[in-house]
């Protein structure tokens, strides 16, 4: 389970899904197993939500540049619960994509599909394709450890290791063998202590934490504030050189100042990385994202478009009602 070192699951996450174990990920397509939607409109809706049939055009988002992630016809079941339905979406490189929607709409499930975190849920069944740079991440030959190095994850609750700040950042590169240090490497002339120091500094700087911790790198990370711990987790994620960073409500446990720092950081990260963020805070989605995907009841992606368009003139009446606070 080496993959869990680079993207450790939080206690809360494990609690949320009983029976967690390493499963075999996606099952094959089985004809006739897709549960039929409920009723003509197909969805049981949250109280107050209008009934409408989503249109394909509401999910068509055109953008300049290439897609780093292409999701095609993704369906996810947790046992009999059809958590995600026919999700197709292209996520542009080096940008911020926000996933919003009411509780239980499937947005976190979707996020977890992007680096196969759902493999860890025995009851989860995934169909469809998720292509990362044209390669299906659910293909048999995919190395999960390598995948999760390239597509890192930051969770709602900051979850630093109970180790020093330095060790938190250097832990994964050391484990992956990217950095060697100690007596033996020193004797063999392969000691990477200097490059480790450089890596730690670079990652902490990129995570906007360096200035606050530079003089106490050997202090225990658990002594940091919540906001600092979260930025340390982002630094730890950066240490394995990802291209994509998935964030599951990364600021919801933080105060407004710490939240502002995380938001500013996300903006800076998007210059070099692709960020996909789940947030319950719609103003946050509006502030920091380039495009927004709105998931609604029943695991549907109802609307996907430029953030300005979604927040100023949503195409879907249900999305309009959700973002203006008429339900959810």
């Amino acid at each position: 389970m080496t993959e869990s070192r680079t993207t450790p699951a939080t206690a809360g996450e494990a609690d949320a899904q009983s029976g967690e174990s390493i499963g075999d990920g996606r099952t094959g397509r089985v004809e006739g197993t897709t549960p039929e939607p409920v009723g003509d409109d197909g969805r049981e809706t949250t109280a107050g939500e209008s009934a409408e049939r989503p249109r394909e055009t509401w999910r068509e988002h055109t953008f300049e540049g290439e897609a780093i992630l292409s999701v095609d016809d993704l369906n996810v079941w947790y046992g009999d619960d059809h958590a995600l339905r026919d999700i197709s979406i292209d996520i542009p490189r080096e940008s911020v994509t926000a996933l919003i929607g009411p509780s239980g709409c499937g947005k976190s499930t979707f996020l977890r599909c992007l680096n196969r975190m759902n493999d860890r849920i025995r009851a989860a069944r995934v169909e469809g394709t998720v292509s990362y740079d044209g390669q299906d991440i659910y293909a048999d030959e995919v190395d999960l450890v390598e995948l999760r190095k390239r597509i890192g994850m930051v969770f709602q609750q900051p979850n630093p290791f109970p180790k020093s700040i330095r060790d938190n950042v250097a832990y994964a590169p050391r484990k992956h063998g990217d950095i060697e240090r100690g007596l033996l490497p020193k004797l063999l002339g392969r000691d990477d202590t200097d490059s480790e120091d450089e890596l730690v500094e670079r990652c902490l700087r990129d995570a906007a934490l360096w200035d606050e911790v530079a003089d106490r790198l050997d202090d225990n990370a658990l002594g940091l504030s919540g906001g600092q711990q979260q930025r340390l987790c982002i630094a730890r994620c950066l240490a394995v050189d990802p291209e994509i960073i998935l964030m599951d409500e990364p600021a919801s446990a933080l105060d407004p100042i710490a939240t502002a720092k995380i938001e500013e950081l996300i903006d800076e990260l998007a210059e070099d990385y692709t960020v996909v963020i789940v947030t319950h805070n719609m103003q946050q989605a509006a502030r920091i994202s380039d495009q927004t995907a709105v998931f609604l009841t029943g695991g549907e992606l109802v609307e996907y478009g430029a953030t300005e368009q979604v927040f100023e003139n949503p195409q879907s009446q249900r999305v309009e009602e959700y973002i203006t606070g008429k339900f959810g």
């Binding site: 927040f311 100023e312 003139n313 203006t324």
Partner: peptide, 9 residues
């Protein structure tokens, strides 16, 4: 209230 969508308009 930070209005959005038709409320903002």
């Amino acid at each position: 209230q930070q209005p959005v969508a038709s409320d903002l308009r």
